[in-house]
Write a protein that binds this DNA or RNA. Structure first.
Length: 683
DNA sequence: CTTTCAGACCTTTTT
DNA sequence: GGTCTGAAAG
């Protein structure tokens, strides 16, 4: 296929390198795209261009990091060309795997109705196996379910052995490598037996399917004639394999990524994957995008400097045509409350200057870092949405309902039963296991009212629960109806367990309304597992109102705002305290900071509270005030004093007896001592 | 034998 | 807020 006559003047919309990528139709290509260099633009225009050239939209596959990203891009591609672009196949590796595997499940020994385990499901299964194998009664402390799960997952995603992963991630447990391996084998067998897949299985099974089944590989590869992979630096080995297999028939694959923005190694991603691309595809065309269209020069000067200090050197130095503008502002705030207050004031004053709230983002390393700010925002009635951190589905009460639904879908869902049954007073782990056994034996809900349980104090509750299932089966209710049938049983238990049961009950209503869109329970559960909704986004129904964005840096990936405010630039916060001991992890933290700072178009605020309460904890052990150093990512920049403007901020209504006290050091004239201040401030 | 409850300790980041 | 442990209560 060659570029023919076009209705759209691509050359005026794109720069030379971008155009080269967009018009690269045949063969493998790797686009190394710096932050803000318009890589999504390239993908959008390329999709449009391919369709315009006569490619069937459904033969174009766009693999992205989140589903939202794929949808956004297709929407914009449709705007560039026309509606045909909305038919482009797109989604995450996981959702694509789900799609293909439902079709070919049988060829790999699965039933097409397999269920998907989310992380918590997987962990509780691990826990069940851990106690079945009696590893929970070892003399020595045995790794917890979370640790076991992450070791197994990392081993699967990176192709390393359990022992090697443990050697690196948790050397203090490495002598349990055999036991963990044993758990993994049991875990794998169990899932296969019960027709379940966890997130990793989706990738593994797809990879195996394509690798070992020539027929399927051909069919699939021929269907998707043009493959584009976004955020290639955050793919892992397994995903790299899948991409290569998908392209095996035609090699029309275009991968886009930035080695300087790799921030997902904790889930097995390796930015060196991007370097391996030319090895898999020796003839790959390499295109580099270095012109930044997002940020003003002073911001770019600063962000270039962050990444310059990386151990591994990167191939790009970004430049922009956006001259002028203010330098990033470093703000030394008295404490976290002052920091929060500064954010509120800044946000409000920006809004006075016509910067909409939704064009301002507050970014932070860990979800809980914004806790204080959230209180302050609520007090001042500043609306916000928060991305990252806890998901809606992770709330205990939502999990309860979800597990109930799993048992409705499948009488034999042990994980579901193990959560639903102990809700009943007097039923603990052991009794739950017995009841589950009876249900499994009968392959019917009547196992709940087995003779064994006659006369027990929980008999009545089991009967009530049994009636709930009977009602659902006889009425063929939609998903929302199933949840409604569960409520009379569940509500009293919820009420007994939590003081704030009212708030929690609201969530269940939200879940009911979400379920309203699904006719099939199976689809509902699959969708929620593949695309878990954000907690706060779900809670706030009034979505039209303009809102300030709060986000973890990880969730801010790929996005941009007029103004970006980065919280708590402290050693222990960013870099996170868990990463301090490891060189590679520090490097990843640096890239994280780079990603955060490069989100800003016009204004960048770098906040640094002098003291923090409660150390690093988010679990309420307040009362202790800690002093931490400024983040090394700031202090290591030698000419930082030239790159940023220095400000101090003390809380205004903190009740100082001397109103001037907070401004004792105040001098905003940007003296040569700025660097010293950033370095030494309160430490 | 099972459940429950108090207290210690802790989870980054996400499909 | 959750998870895990040990020990008291049922």
């Amino acid at each position: 296929m060659r570029g023919g006559y076009s209705m759209i003047d691509y050359s005026s919309e794109l720069n030379e390198s971008q155009l080269r990528a967009v018009e690269f139709f045949e063969g493998p290509a790797l686009v190394i795209a710096g932050a803000g260099s318009g890589k999504t633009r390239v993908l959008e225009y390329r999709a449009a261009r391919l369709v315009e050239n006569g490619a069937d939209p459904e033969s174009i596959l766009l693999l992205t990091f989140t589903r939202r990203a794929a949808q956004e891009m297709m929407k914009r591609a449709s705007r560039i060309l026309d509606d045909r672009c909305s038919r482009v196949a797109g989604g995450t590796f996981h959702s694509f795997a789900n799609h293909i595997l439902r079709k070919y499940a049988k060829t790999i020994g699965y039933d097409p109705k397999f269920t998907i385990l989310d992380r918590e499901d997987s962990e509780s299964l691990i826990n069940v196996l851990r106690s079945t194998l009696q590893y929970d009664v070892t003399k020595e402390r045995f790794p917890k379910k979370r640790t076991i799960m992450s070791v197994i997952s990392k081993s699967v995603n990176t192709g390393k052995s359990i022992k090697d992963v443990m050697d690196y991630d948790c050397p203090h447990f490495v002598h349990f490598a055999d036991e963990v391996g044993h758990i993994q084998r049991e875990y794998t067998a169990y899932k296969k037996n019960k027709n379940m897949m966890d997130y990793d299985d989706l990738l593994v099974c797809l990879c195996d399917l394509l690798r070992y089944n020539k027929q399927v590989r051909r069919t699939v590869s021929r269907k998707y004639r043009f493959i584009m992979v976004d955020e290639f630096q955050d793919t892992n080995k397994l995903q790299g394999h899948i991409a290569a297999l998908l392209a095996s028939e035609h090699e029309n694959i275009l991968a886009v990524g930035d080695d300087a923005q790799s921030i997902y190694s904790f889930r097995g991603a390796n930015f060196r994957n991007i370097m391996d691309f030319p090895e898999i595809f020796p003839d790959a065309e390499i295109i580099t995008l270095e012109q930044n269209y997002r940020s003003i020069q002073p911001i770019l000067d600063f962000t270039n400097r962050i990444i310059e200090n990386a151990e591994e050197k990167y191939s790009k130095e970004l430049f922009t045509a956006k001259e002028g503008g203010d330098r990033p502002v470093f703000v030394a705030a008295g404490d976290e409350d002052a920091q929060a207050e500064f954010v509120c004031r800044t946000v409000l004053s920006l809004r006075e200057d016509d910067v909409p709230l939704s064009d301002i983002a507050v970014l932070f390393r860990n979800s809980f870092h914004s806790n204080r700010l959230e209180v302050e925002l609520t007090n001042r009635n500043i609306p916000y949405v928060k991305y990252g951190g806890f998901k809606f589905l992770e709330a205990a009460h939502i999990k309860d309902v979800m597990c109930f639904l799993k048992t409705v879908l499948n009488v034999d869902d042990e994980i579901g039963w193990r959560r639903v049954l102990p809700l009943i007073p007097g039923v603990g782990d052991v009794t739950a296991q017995n009841i589950t056994g009876r249900v499994s034996e009968a392959q019917d809900y009547k196992g709940l009212v087995h003779a064994d349980f006659r006369g027990k104090k929980y008999e009545k509750d089991l009967k009530a629960l049994h009636r709930v299932y009977s009602e659902i089966i006889s009425s063929e209710s939609p998903v929302s109806g199933m949840i409604e049938s569960f409520i009379p049983f569940y509500k009293p238990l919820l009420k007994a367990k939590y003081d704030n049961y009212n708030v929690r009950f609201q969530d269940i209503n939200t879940l009911i309304s979400m379920a309203g869109n699904y006719a099939s329970l199976e689809n509902f559960l699959t969708q929620l597992a593949l695309e878990p909704p954000e907690k706060n986004v779900v809670e706030q129904a009034d979505r039209d109102e303009e809102k300030l964005v709060l986000s973890t840096i990880h969730s801010a990936k790929g996005l941009e705002w007029n103004t970006v405010i980065i919280l708590s630039l402290l050693e222990g916060y960013l870099p996170d305290k868990r990463c301090l001991g490891d060189k590679d992890e520090i490097e990843e933290e640096r890239r994280l900071f780079y990603v955060a700072a490069t989100r800003a178009k016009e204004r960048l605020y770098l906040l640094r509270p002098a003291s923090v309460h409660g150390g690093f904890s988010n679990y309420g052990n307040q009362g202790f005030t800690g002093i931490l150093k400024s983040s090394r990512f700031l202090t290591e920049i030698e000419d930082i004093a030239d790159l940023v403007e220095y400000q101090e901020y003390e809380r205004e209504d903190a009740g100082y007896s001397d109103p001037d006290e907070g401004y004792e050091h105040d001098s905003n004239e940007g003296s040569g001592d700025t660097m010293g201040r950033i370095n030494r401030y309160y430490d």
